[in-house]
Design a protein around this nucleic acid. Sequence first.
DNA 1: AACTGTTTGTTCGATTATAGAACACAATTG
DNA 2: CAATTGTGTTCTATAATCGAACAAACAGTT
Lengths: 238, 238
Amino acid sequence: MTPNAGTAQASPSQTLSRGIRALEILAEAQQPLTIAELADAMGVHRSVAYRILRTLEDHSLLVRDDGGRVQPGPGLAVLARGVSRNLQTAALPELTLLANTLTMSAFVAVWDREECVTLVTVDPRHSGAAVVQHPGSRHPISAGAPGIAIQSAFPEQEWRALVPGIPYRSEAAEARHRGYAASHDEVIPGVSSIAVPLRVPGGRPAALAVVYIRAAQDPDEVAAALTEAARRIEAQLG
Amino acid sequence: MTPNAGTAQASPSQTLSRGIRALEILAEAQQPLTIAELADAMGVHRSVAYRILRTLEDHSLLVRDDGGRVQPGPGLAVLARGVSRNLQTAALPELTLLANTLTMSAFVAVWDREECVTLVTVDPRHSGAAVVQHPGSRHPISAGAPGIAIQSAFPEQEWRALVPGIPYRSEAAEARHRGYAASHDEVIPGVSSIAVPLRVPGGRPAALAVVYIRAAQDPDEVAAALTEAARRIEAQLG
DNA sequence: AACTGTTTGTTCGATTATAGAACACAATTG
DNA sequence: CAATTGTGTTCTATAATCGAACAAACAGTT
C-alpha cells in the first residue's frame, strides 16, 4: 500500500497537502461549509478534517461564522500579498492608466502550468461594463488572449519542450511576430481581449491585458498602448 | 519533550503549520529566498524544508526562479480569491466611486484578532498621491481609523469580553456615537484616514475607509459618503 | 413536557504510518 | 578546488490517523 494512495496529489507530506486541499475546496465553494461537508469533500474522517481546520484557523487562513461553518480567512490575503509583489506594485499605476484611457478593464495574468492566473485588475472609472476579471481567477492557458500572449513569448520549439502536454496554439505564432494577441468570445461569450507578453527577471512569464465588450478603439492602437505600458513595467523591474 | 516545542504556534498538525509558516516567511521576505535561507528562517533541517517546499510547489503555492530560489506562487492568489468574496465583489464598485469622487484611496479592511487586514483597495484615477494601502497589508487593530471603526461597532463591555487582551480605545467610544472614526499620523506619518464600520451577515466585522494626505473635503462630508457606501454594501449583502 | 433518535462538533487514546535527522552523492557555482 | 545546493537514501522516534466515545443541539413521537 503506497502512501497517499487515495489523494489526488502524490505529495511527500500528506497532511500539508490535505490542508491546502481544504483551502482549495473552500475557495472554490462559493459559500461557507460545515466541517462535515468539507471532510466529505476531502474524503477524510471528520476528526482529521477538524484537526486540520483548527491548524488553519490558528493561522487565520480560515475563519468560522456564527454557525460554525468555515470559510477562507484573511491570512490568505496576507500570503497572497507576496505573490509577484514587485510586478503588482509596478503594474498597478500602469493598469490604472490603461483602464481609464481605454475605458476597459486592465489586468495582469501570470502563467501557472496549464492555466494563467489573474493577479491584479483595475476597472475603468466609469464602470458601465461589469467586472469580468477578478484577482485569483484562472483560465486555461490555451484560451483567451492572455494565455496566447504568454505562449507567444516562446518559439514553438521551446514551448513544446517546456510543457509537453499543452499544444502550442497557432495564434501564438501569429501573435509572436505581430506583438500582441487578441481573442473574441473565447473565455466569456461576448467579451474580447487584447494582451501582450510581459517578462520580468526572476518571475514567471506573464501577460498584460485588457478586456472589453465593444471596442471604441482600433485594436492596433490598444495593443500599442499595452506594449508601451509593458515596456515601462519591465524597465522599472530592471 | 512536548511536541511543537520550538514552533511558535502549538497547532495540532506540525507539518501543516510549518508549511504555512514557510509561506508566511516568504510573503514577508520581499525577495526570493534559497531553500537554505528558508530552512534557516523556519528553524528546521534543509531536508525537511525541501520536502515541505516540494509539496507547496505541487499546489502552485510557491514557485522557483531560475536560480532555484523560492517565492510565493500564483496558487495563493487563487486561494485568496475566496476570502470574503461577497464582500469584495459588493464593495468594489463602491470603492471605485469613493476613490474617484473623493480623490482618495479607498479600501476595505477586515478584523483579524489583534490586527486588521486590508482586503480590497482602489486608488483614485488621478493618482498623484502614492498608494499607501495594498491588499494583504496588516495593521494593529489599535492603530488607525479602520481599527477604531471596527472597535466602534461594539460597546466597550462586549469588546472587553470578546478580546481580553486588547484595550478598547477611547476614540472608539467617541466614534461609536459620531458614526465614524478618524486618525492622523498613526500608521503612516503624514497620512490621515477616515473609516466607518461595516457589518456583513456571516462575515467578520470590517471597515470601509479612505486615506489621504491633505483633505480637500470636510471630514463630516467624507464620513457621510462612506456611511452611504457602507449602507449600500450592507444592503446588497442582505 | 419528557423521551428518543439523529445530526453535528469535539475530544481522546492506541496503532501505524510518517516525518525528521544524518549521511552520501551529484550538480552547481564561485 | 572548495563551497553551496539539489536529490536520494536509510532508520528510528514521533506525530498523524483512525475509530470510537462524549457532548450538545434539534426534530419527531407518544
